[in-house]
Structure formats: C-alpha cells, structure tokens
C-alpha cells in the first residue's frame, strides 16, 4: 500500500528526474529527524550527565559530552544514593520493585486468564453483566477509590505491607487484563470446548491442557502490559506499599527531592537511568508486542 502512496506522488506531479529527491521529500525527512531529536534529547541529556563528574557538570553545559565518561555515578546511585539521611542507594527500591512485581504479575495474569476464559467459554446468565461492570471499573479514577481502599486494607491488616501492595496491583489490573483474555478466548471456536467436554474434560482440565498452550501471544501481551505498568507505577506504591517496601519510582522521586547536602546531579540522573532501564529493555526486546500490549485493553475494550 505504501507503494501506491508513492506512485500517487509521482503521477500527480510527474517531473523528469532520476532520483526521488524532491523538496517535499527533504522536508519530510527534516521533520522526522527534528521529531526524533525532540524525542531523544531529554533522555540523552540524562544519560550524558550521568557519565560526568560533578565539577565537569558545574563548569560545562548539558550538551557537552563527558571528557572521561565513567559509570562511577551509576555505582554511587546503586549503592549509596540518599533519601534524606538513609544512604543505602536505589538498589533498595529496585529490589522492592522486583518483590512487588513478580507475584503481582504472575497472580494478576493467572487470575485474569481464568476469568477471561470463564467469561468467554462458560457463559451463564449474568456473565455479560459482570463483563460490563469490569469494563466500567477500568475507567474509575484511582483517586475515587484510594482512601476507602486504605481503610479496607487497614481493617484486614494488609495496609502498608508487601502482600497489601501486591493485592492492590492484582485488583487494579483485573479489569483490563480480564477483558484482554476474554476477547482472546472469545475467538476460539466453542466446538473445541464441546468436543473436549464430551471426552470428559472439565473446566480446569480444558483450560490448562487446551487453552493455555494456545495463549502464548496473548500471555506475552499481558506480561508486557503488567511488567511495564507495575514497574512504572508511582501512586499505588506511594500509598499502599508502606515505608519498608517503597518501589523504585517512589524512591527515585525521594532521592531527587532530598535536599540534604550538595546536589549531586550525576547521581540523580544515574538513578533515573537505572529506574528507566528495566521497562526500556522490555520495550526493545518485545518490539511489536509492546504496542499490542499497551493498546490491547483500551482499544478492544
């Protein structure tokens, strides 16, 4: 189809020329390159600054390349960056985020997959209503729910704990994930289930031996959505995780916001890079799945 587009350009303005270098084409590339710079510069500056020592930062400009690039600030950010008087580095937040992420991702995907399968293939009176309620739930702003949720979790003794924040992530992930799985399993012909049922397979047997092996693609999409979403979460971690379990994003903001002593921009920026890196790696590894993951719930729902 892109070929057709180009032919249109050629036929609508036919000019005797060997190459396709037209002013329009140059303008197009110029705009794309300027846009690319707009998207790259903020992160490149953070990266650039994280490689410089402090005296070089004070003397020079943000665009100056480091004279002697070094990851010293990264090491300092990892092991001894300070939040107030606590100087244990951003690794504390990193490991907290990992501890929150792993169970949240596994349980939310497992529960949502089984829910989606039940809603798609084992319908009953009222299952459409549940689906509608889930879908609307995805649109409620967190702020409407936060305070009463804090009270509920305090009542059951989970507020400010690791299990507490994990439960919160699982619950808040349910609507979108369930919709994604439900849409996926709706596409699988019901005859398949019927045949399995005649052979005597039950709800879980069919799910684990037939459905799950067919779900690789949608599992990858869900995985990307949850890993980046939970890693990047700030608000839920801030409110529900408690002082001991603050995720990396919250700790990063605290480190940068701490004004004890001299500002160490290189350490702040190294800490920022370290926080940005895990989802960036997921992004670069996942390619086209990433877009599907980000848009799946919203566009299809």
């Amino acid at each position: 189809m892109t070929v057709a587009v180009d032919q249109v350009a050629v036929t609508s303005a036919p000019k005797p020329r060997g190459f396709q270098i037209t002013p329009g084409r140059i303008g197009l590339y110029a705009f794309l390159i300027i846009s690319a710079l707009f998207f790259l510069i903020p992160l490149l500056i953070v990266f650039n600054t994280s490689l410089k020592p402090m005296d070089e930062i004070r003397a020079g400009d943000i665009f100056d390349l480091p004279i002697d690039p070094s990851f010293a600030a990264w090491a300092e950010a990892w092991t001894s960056a300070c939040t107030g008087r606590n100087c244990e580095g951003i690794r504390v937040g990193f490991w907290n985020s990992v501890k929150i992420l792993v169970p949240s991702v596994i349980f939310s995907i497992l529960i949502a997959a089984i829910n989606g399968y039940a809603l798609a293939q084992w319908r009953f009176k009222g299952s459409e209503l549940i689906l509608g309620a889930l879908m609307l739930g995805a649109f409620i702003p967190y702020q409407v729910i936060l305070y009463p949720m804090v009270r509920i979790l305090s009542t059951v003794g989970l507020y400010g704990s690791l299990p507490g924040i994990i439960v919160v992530h699982i619950i808040f992930g349910l609507p979108v994930l369930t919709l994604i799985f439900r849409n996926f399993y709706s596409g699988i012909p019901i005859e398949l289930i019927k045949a399995a049922r005649i052979d005597g397979a039950g709800f879980f047997r069919i799910f684990f031996s037939i459905m799950l092996p067919m779900s690789t693609n949608i599992l990858i999409v869900a995985l990307i959505l949850q890993v980046t979403g939970i890693w990047n979460d700030y608000l839920l971690g801030l409110i529900f995780a408690g002082r001991e379990n603050l995720p990396m994003t919250v700790q990063l903001n605290n480190i940068v916001g701490s004004v004890t002593g001299e500002r160490t921009f290189n350490v702040d920026m190294a800490a920022t890079m370290l926080t940005a890196l895990p989802p960036l790696i997921v992004y670069f590894l996942s390619g086209r799945y990433f877009v599907r993951g980000i848009t799946a719930g919203a566009v299809k729902g």
Binding site: L32, S35, A36, F39, L40, I41, P42, L43, I45, V46, T49, I62, T228, W231, N232, D233, Y234, T249, L252, N253, V256, F265, D268, M269, T272, T275, A276, P279, L280, V282, Y283, F284, F290, V291, I294
Partner: peptide, 24 residues
C-alpha cells in the same frame, strides 16, 4: 528506527519523564 524512537518514551515511568524534562 523512527518508530522505535517515537514510541520509547511510552515505556518509561511518568516519574522518569517528569525528572528528565525538569532538568532539561
């Protein structure tokens, strides 16, 4: 390459985006 560059900010936390722009 262009697609990758235009889309990568989406993978990062708003905290990272906010801090990067605050410094810039």
């Amino acid at each position: 390459a262009f697609r990758t560059i235009f889309l990568y900010p989406l993978s990062m936390s708003f905290i990272v985006t906010g801090l990067a722009w605050r410094w810039f």
